[in-house]
């Protein structure tokens, strides 16, 4: 088991109160597993990703345990996480490729970054070059400025950089969202390739686009309004999901071959609840066609079959 998360609860502190953006997250990640994390904007997927590596204010740790390779991660302590960050657990944040310093050459930027972690750039140079070969970038890029590179190239450099020390876990936050379809594909496939050759053990791939996950992930976890809804193999999530939210979400996605004139797709009526003062119980309750009295209690996220986790009173009942 590469990553074990138990009961992780993280709030956001705002002037108007605490936003309950992640509550009681319980899940495991196997060695070599690429887990896709999907959900609408504001559902807490980025909060989950960030809280595993850099839990800084306004994020506030409430409770929970996280273990990586059997070793407990002090996620609530920014200082102590320093020895894990980048070495054991690494992140590609959203918009990372646009955050490069435009006045630094790529090589200089990497060397400065490594220096801040007290790692010698020269010693790692051979690894860097080998990794650049892997992502099909010429070694010249080290002498280039970010402006000379396309979005896809920048994203690949960020990927090489964040996996240089072969971390156990890589968190990739929306790394394909701003890219064109063709580049999207190659960047996503790079992730699989890196995993296969051991550049990192397992991956949490955060995105709002479920169809990409179907292409590259092993398992998919669906979040809704700060709670985990369902986690299973990608085949199960796409073809036979159980949670009502997953079902409605998958069925609302337009696919090539579906025409409006032939088959009209439907969205999910309603909007997600505000997480400032979230309703008690299952947060999908108001929009759920199956909701009943029991849903006033929060459904636990339990394993109903091998590798299939679900938080729903109704659909989970037959397995209880």
């Amino acid at each position: 088991m590469s990553l074990q998360v138990e009961n992780l609860t993280v709030y956001y502190q705002t002037l108007r109160g605490e936003v309950h953006s992640l509550e009681h997250a319980n899940f495991n990640l196997g060695d070599g597993e690429i887990m896709g994390l999907a959900g609408e904007s504001g559902c807490g997927k980025t909060t989950l990703g960030n809280s595993l590596i850099y839990l800084a204010p306004p994020m506030k740790f409430i409770e929970g345990q996280v273990a990586l390779d059997g070793e407990e991660l002090p996620v609530w302590d920014i200082e102590r996480m320093n020895e894990f960050r980048f070495k054991k657990i690494s992140i590609i944040p959203q918009y990372a490729m646009n955050a490069m310093n435009p006045t630094r050459k790529i090589g200089k930027m990497i060397s400065e970054l490594l220096q801040s972690r007290k790692i010698n750039y020269k010693e790692l140079l051979s690894v860097i070059k080998e990794r650049l070969d892997k992502v099909k970038l010429p070694h010249d890029v080290l002498n280039m400025y970010p402006i000379e590179l396309s979005g896809g190239m920048k994203q690949r450099i960020v990927m090489v950089l964040s996996t240089l020390l072969n971390p156990s876990l890589l968190i990739a936050d929306e790394i394909t969202s701003a890219l064109d379809v063709s580049t999207q594909k190659s960047v996503a496939e790079m992730i699989v390739k890196f995993r296969d050759c051991g550049c990192m053990k397992s991956v949490i791939f955060i995105t709002h686009d479920v169809s990409i996950l179907y292409q590259i992930a092993d398992s998919i976890m669906i979040m809704y309004a700060g709670q985990l809804s369902e986690k299973a193999s990608k085949e199960t999530i796409i073809h036979s999901p159980l949670h009502p939210y997953t079902k409605l979400l998958i069925s609302s996605l337009p696919k090539v071959g579906v025409k409006h004139s032939e088959k009209k797709l439907t969205g999910i009526p309603g909007t997600p609840p505000l997480l400032l003062n979230p309703p008690v119980g299952c947060r999908f309750r108001d929009r759920c066609p199956l909701a009943f009295e029991k849903c006033l209690e929060t459904p636990p996220f339990v394993e109903i079959e091998q590798g299939h986790f679900l938080a729903c009173w109704k659909e989970g009942a037959p397995y209880a």
């Binding site: 609408e40 337009p254 409006h260 004139s261 439907t266 969205g267 999910i268």
Partner: peptide, 28 residues
């Protein structure tokens, strides 16, 4: 978001029945 975009898309398609022509610019 995925759960709301299809409704806007359907609305657009329904406008056709009101006699509208649409230039739908997309990358998807």
């Amino acid at each position: 978001d995925a759960s709301t975009r299809i409704d806007v898309l359907n609305l657009l398609a329904d406008l056709k029945s009101r006699g509208l022509s649409i230039l739908f610019i997309t990358h998807d």
